[in-house]
Write a protein that binds this DNA or RNA. Structure first.
Lengths: 188, 188
DNA sequence: CGATAATATGGAGAGTGTCTCCGGATGCGC
DNA sequence: GCGCATCCGGAGACACTCTCCATATTATCG
C-alpha cells in the first residue's frame, strides 16, 4: 500500500514508480521464478536500482507488495466457506484449501511465513486477516462442540501451513492421510 | 560418504579435507544459519575454495553431507527411545524430538526437503534410514493397538516435519497445543 | 627406496548480484 | 513563479560463487 493514510501521501512520481515496480516484479517473478535479479526488475520497470531499494529495502518487502492481494483472496475464502457449509465441513474444506494453496505456492508460503516471523508490518496485517478469518470457522465449530476447546484459529493456520509444507511432493493418498490425522486431532 | 566402495578409494589428503569441510560446515551452519558464505567455510576449514567446490559442486551437496551425519544421530535416537520407553511414550518423545530438531535446523530442513526433486542419492538414503527408524516406533505402537491402523512411519515423519516448520517462532504453549492435536489425531 | 603417474590442492580472478550514496532533477505548496 | 522537501538514477563499492591451472602431494611399481 503506497503511502499509508497516516503519513503524508507519496509524491506523484514516487507512487507511479512504486506501482510500476510492483507490476514488473509480479510479471518477472511469475515468469522467471522468485530469484530474478532485482536490478533486472528495476531496469525493466524503467527506474534506477536506488529507487527500487528505497521502496523495497529487501526482496521480501517486494514479495509482500506483490502478493498481498493473494492473501486477501485466501482470507475471503474462509468467510465464503463459513457461509456455504456446516461448521465442520467448512473447517475441513478450509484446511484442505489452505494446504492446497501452500503446496502450490510453497515458495511464496515460505517467504510469507518468514516475513511474518521476522515482524513485517504488511504481512502482520495479512496474518491478522488470516487469523480472523480462520477464527470464525474455528469458533463456530467449537461453539457447536465439534472440536477441542483449547484450539484457536492460529493453531489451525499453523497446522495447515505445516501440513502443506510436509505434504508437498507426495502422493494424494499420503497427503490425505496426513490431513486426516490432523482433522481427527482437531475433533472434540 | 567419502569415496564410495565401488570406485577407487579417495586419496588420504582428499578424505581428510572432505571430512574437515563437513565438520566445519556443520559448525558454521548451526552457528550462523544456512547462508554462510562457502568461502568462509573453506577458509575456516583451512582449504582453498577450489577444494570445497570440487567435493561439493553445489551448496545442496554440502548440506546433504552435513545432514547425513545428523540424520544418523537422529535415526539412532528413534531406536534408543524404542528400547527405553513404552510404545506410546516412545512415539510421543520421538515426535517431540523431531519437531525440536526441525525448529533448530529449519533452514537445513527446508533446503533438504526441497532437494527431493533432484532425486539426490544421499537424500534418498537418509529418507530410507529415517523411515525405517520411525517405522519401528509406529509398528510397535500399532501392534499395541495404540494408534490408527492406516498410519505409517513416513506419515509421522511428515507430520513432525510439518509441525516443526509451523511451530518455529511461536510460544512453547502454542507449540505444545499443535503437537497435542497431532498426537491426538494419531491415537487409535 | 626412488621415480613416475595419478590425483588433489589453493587462491587469484572473472562473473554476477546486492545495496549505498549523493549530485541533480522533480513535484508540491505558497 | 519560487523555494524546499522529496525523489531519482546509476556508478561503483562490496560480497559471494565458481573456475582454472600451475604446483604440490600421494600412491604405485620396479
Amino acid at each position: 500500500m503506497p503511502g499509508g493514510e497516516t503519513a503524508r501521501p507519496m509524491r506523484a512520481d514516487a507512487r507511479r514508480n512504486y506501482e510500476r515496480i510492483v507490476a514488473t516484479a509480479n510479471e518477472l517473478f511469475t515468469a522467471h521464478g522468485a530469484d530474478v535479479p532485482l536490478d533486472d526488475v528495476a531496469k525493466k520497470a524503467g527506474v534506477g536500482a536506488g529507487t527500487l531499494y528505497r521502496h523495497f529495502p529487501t526482496r521480501e518487502k517486494l514479495f509482500e507488495a506483490v502478493y498481498r492481494d493473494e492473501i486477501e483472496v485466501l482470507a475471503d475464502r474462509a468467510y465464503a466457506l463459513h457461509e456455504q457449509l456446516p461448521p465442520w465441513e467448512a473447517l475441513e474444506a478450509w484446511l484442505t484449501e489452505q494446504v492446497t494453496w501452500v503446496v502450490e505456492r510453497h515458495k511464496l508460503a515460505t517467504i510469507l511465513k518468514e516475513s511474518i516471523d521476522s515482524g513485517s508490518e504488511t504481512f502482520q496485517y495479512c496474518q491478522k486477516r488470516l487469523r480472523a478469518a480462520t477464527g470464525v470457522l474455528v469458533d463456530t465449530a467449537r461453539d457447536a462442540g465439534l472440536i477441542r476447546r483449547d484450539v484457536v484459529g492460529a493453531d489451525v493456520l499453523r497446522l495447515g501451513h505445516g501440513a502443506g509444507m510436509a505434504v508437498r511432493n507426495c502422493s494424494p493418498e499420503d497427503g490425505k492421510r496426513v490431513l486426516d490425522v490432523i482433522l481427527d486431532g482437531l475433533r472434540a
